[in-house]
Design a binder for these strands. Structure first.
Length: 216
DNA sequence: CTCTCGATCCTCT
DNA sequence: GAGGATCGAGAGC
C-alpha cells in the first residue's frame, strides 16, 4: 500500500503559506530522490527560511533574475542553485506564486539507499555525515541544476518528492540564527533543527571576506 | 568587459 | 580554528 499517510506527498497548499510557518514543519519530512540507480530517501533534520524580497539574505532580495526565477513561481517546487564554484543547494519554494520565498534543506538522515549516497560521498567519514550540510545533501542525493523547478508534490516516480514523513515532537524543534548569513539578515532566528540530532550541521558564523585594501 | 564575493566543504594544525 | 578551492551571478563602468 502506498496510501499510508506518511508516504503521501505534501500538498501544494502546505507550501503556499508564509515561509516562516512552513520551515519548522518541514522537519522530519521524507525527501525522496529517484536516481537511475535506485531511490534514496532522507529524513530532514535541519532547514533555513529565506523570506524573499524582504530578506537581505535571500537570493530574491534584489529582485527577479534568470537564476532565481523559480523562487517567484508556484510553491512546492525545487529551487536548485550553484554556489562557491563547486556545489549545489536545494530549496523548497514557498508562499503563493509571485512571492519569492523558500526553505533551504540543510541536512538530514539517509533512511534508504545509503549505499548509493555513500558512493557519491566517498569522503564522508560516517553515515551521519552523508547529508550533514546543504552541499553534502545535494551531492549525496545527486541533485544539480537539472532539477531546478521540478514539482515536489507530484509523487510517484517524480525525480524529487517531499512526503509527509515523520515530524518530530514540537518540543524537540530548536531555532537560531542562520548559518553563513551576514549583514542585516544575520539576526533572524530562521534556522530550524531537531534537538540533539547527530546529522545536524555545526553552526558557522558568517565570515566576511578580506578586502584587498583593508589593513589593520 | 571586469571585478567582487558567495545560503560551503575539506584538510591540516 | 584557519585557509584554499573554484566559477558564475550581479553590479558598475
Amino acid at each position: 500500500m502506498t496510501d499510508v499517510p506518511e508516504r503521501m506527498p505534501l500538498n501544494r497548499d502546505f507550501f503556499a503559506r508564509p515561509v516562516i510557518e512552513v520551515a519548522p514543519e518541514l522537519l522530519g519530512r521524507t525527501l525522496v530522490r529517484h536516481t537511475p540507480d535506485g531511490p534514496i530517501e532522507l529524513r530532514l533534520t535541519e532547514v533555513e527560511a529565506y523570506d524573499g524580497e524582504n530578506d537581505p539574505g535571500s537570493h530574491a532580495y534584489r529582485g527577479r533574475t534568470a537564476r532565481n526565477a523559480t523562487m517567484f513561481g508556484p510553491p512546492g517546487h525545487a529551487y536548485v542553485y550553484f554556489i562557491y564554484g563547486m556545489w549545489f543547494s536545494l530549496n523548497a519554494v514557498c508562499a503563493p506564486e509571485g512571492q519569492a520565498s523558500g526553505v533551504l534543506l540543510r541536512a538530514g538522515k539517509i533512511i534508504r539507499g545509503a549505499e548509493l549516497a555513500a558512493a557519491r560521498r566517498p569522503k564522508a567519514r560516517s553515515a551521519n555525515e552523508l547529508a550533514k550540510g546543504p552541499a553534502r545533501l545535494a551531492t549525496a542525493l545527486d541533485i544539480d541544476r537539472s532539477l531546478d523547478g521540478v514539482d515536489l508534490c507530484r509523487g510517484g516516480d517524480a525525480p524529487l518528492t517531499l512526503l509527509q514523513g515523520d515530524p518530530p515532537d514540537p518540543a524537540l524543534v530548536r531555532h537560531g540564527p542562520r548559518t553563513g548569513v551576514g549583514g542585516d539578515g544575520a539576526h533572524h532566528p530562521w534556522r530550524y533543527w531537531i534537538a540533539d540530532d547527530p546529522t545536524v550541521s555545526p553552526y558557522r558564523r558568517h565570515v566576511p571576506r578580506r578586502r584587498a585594501t583593508s589593513a589593520t
